[in-house]
């Protein structure tokens, strides 16, 4: 077959209570005509996106749950092979925030031990309905040594950035593990690199 056109492949998952916005994070809000199409009726299973980080071409395969989270039946098969997990709560929903701890336990139980996690406080566009402060989000993330970001799928805030930060964190992990991989040599200015990848806002 054709030559491999990428350096690394990362499988990423979206996890969290029902209604927090996981599907919208993957399947963008489109207010235009597309929302009435065939595709929105059947739904999207996963996306493949290519990002370039520190000179490496990285394929992200991003999966949404098919609604299994409603029945708390997310098990090993969904987590299989996952290298990164976006753990999402809704800043207007206290319960979804409290359940982050439950999801973390579920991840510990079923996912690969060294899976890279990131907590997202979604719907940050809904300032008037906010119940969970950004401080509380940051605190729980710090407690578990996980990255944190507030996002809005609706206003397209921090979505792309979140994915490229998660990818970078995975890259950091895998870099040390590949024998003979010369990646250490190019550990220049992480921040700057990530900003050059298509960022949605700010």
């Amino acid at each position: 077959m054709a030559k491999k056109t990428y350096d690394l492949l990362f499988k990423l998952l979206l996890i969290g209570d029902s209604g927090v916005g996981k599907t919208c994070i993957l399947f963008r809000f489109s207010d235009d005509a597309f929302t009435t199409t065939f595709i929105s009726t059947i739904g999207i299973d996963f996306k493949i996106k290519t990002v370039e980080l520190r000179g490496k071409k990285i394929k992200l395969q991003i999966w949404d749950t098919a609604g299994q989270e409603r029945f708390h039946t997310i098990t090993t098969s969904y987590y299989r092979g996952a290298m990164g997990i976006m753990l999402v709560y809704d800043i207007t929903n206290e319960k979804s925030f409290e359940n982050i701890v439950k999801w973390l336990r579920n991840i510990d139980e079923h996912a690969n031990e060294d899976v890279e996690k990131m907590i997202l406080g979604n719907k940050c566009d809904m300032t008037d309905k906010r119940i969970v402060s950004k401080d509380r989000g940051e605190m729980i993330a710090r407690e578990h040594s996980i990255r944190f970001m507030e996002t809005s799928a609706k206003a397209n805030i921090n979505i792309e950035r979140a994915f490229s930060e998660l990818a970078e964190a995975i890259l950091d992990k895998t870099a040390g593990k590949e024998p003979g991989d010369p990646i250490d040599r190019v550990m220049v200015d992480r921040r700057q690199q990530s900003n050059t990848t298509k960022s949605c806002c700010n």
């Binding site: 054709a2 491999k4 739904g43 299973d45 996963f46 996306k47 493949i48 394929k59 395969q61 098919a66």
Partner: peptide
């Protein structure tokens, strides 16, 4: 499928 730069797969 990983030859694609960017693409979505439906259910």
């Amino acid at each position: 499928m990983f030859t694609f730069q960017n693409v979505g797969f439906s259910n």
